[in-house]
């Protein structure tokens, strides 16, 4: 599914699209450059899923967890990690096989660890609008 977002203030459109496309799948891989809006998307999703928590960046902490109506949401950023081995040493499988929501930024190194995930690719255009592709992908 393709989506145009005029500015980051319309990020809730992406939240709606995610809930539709995911069809119950709780793992999402987020692709996009620095400043594309990956963390902003998760922030809005966390609210939409009924949490009172304010989601902040997990770049340093690697994993942030939030209580949502339907259990937990793990927000991960693998930017600082270099390999699947490092991700495993962090205990990444404990999160992605937990059955809870897992929103993963910079997921390239763990793509082989799951059977399917919702892939969200965000591209920033010249005029600062965003083009988004969002699909449920089987690996």
């Amino acid at each position: 599914m393709k989506l145009q977002i005029q500015s980051i203030s319309e990020i809730d459109k992406l939240v709606e699209a995610f809930l539709k496309v995911s069809n119950g799948e709780k793992i999402a891989f987020l692709y996009g450059d620095l400043g594309a809006g990956k963390t902003t998307f998760v922030k809005h999703l966390v609210k939409k899923l009924g949490s009172i928590d304010e989601a902040s960046s997990p770049t340093y902490s690697l994993v942030n967890e939030y209580d949502v109506t339907e259990g937990k949401l793990y927000h991960m950023d693998l930017y600082r990690l270099n390999s699947e081995q490092e991700a495993l040493e962090v205990g990444i499988e404990d999160y992605i096989y937990s059955g809870h929501f897992c929103m993963v930024e910079w997921p390239q190194i763990i793509e082989k660890l799951v059977d399917k995930a919702v892939e969200i690719h965000i591209t920033t255009n010249e005029d600062e609008s965003r083009s988004v592709e969002i699909d449920l992908v089987n690996y």
Binding site: E86, E89, V90
Partner: peptide, 8 residues
């Protein structure tokens, strides 16, 4: 010393 990890 592994680079970044937690089980390290």
């Amino acid at each position: 010393v592994p680079e970044v990890a937690s089980r390290k």
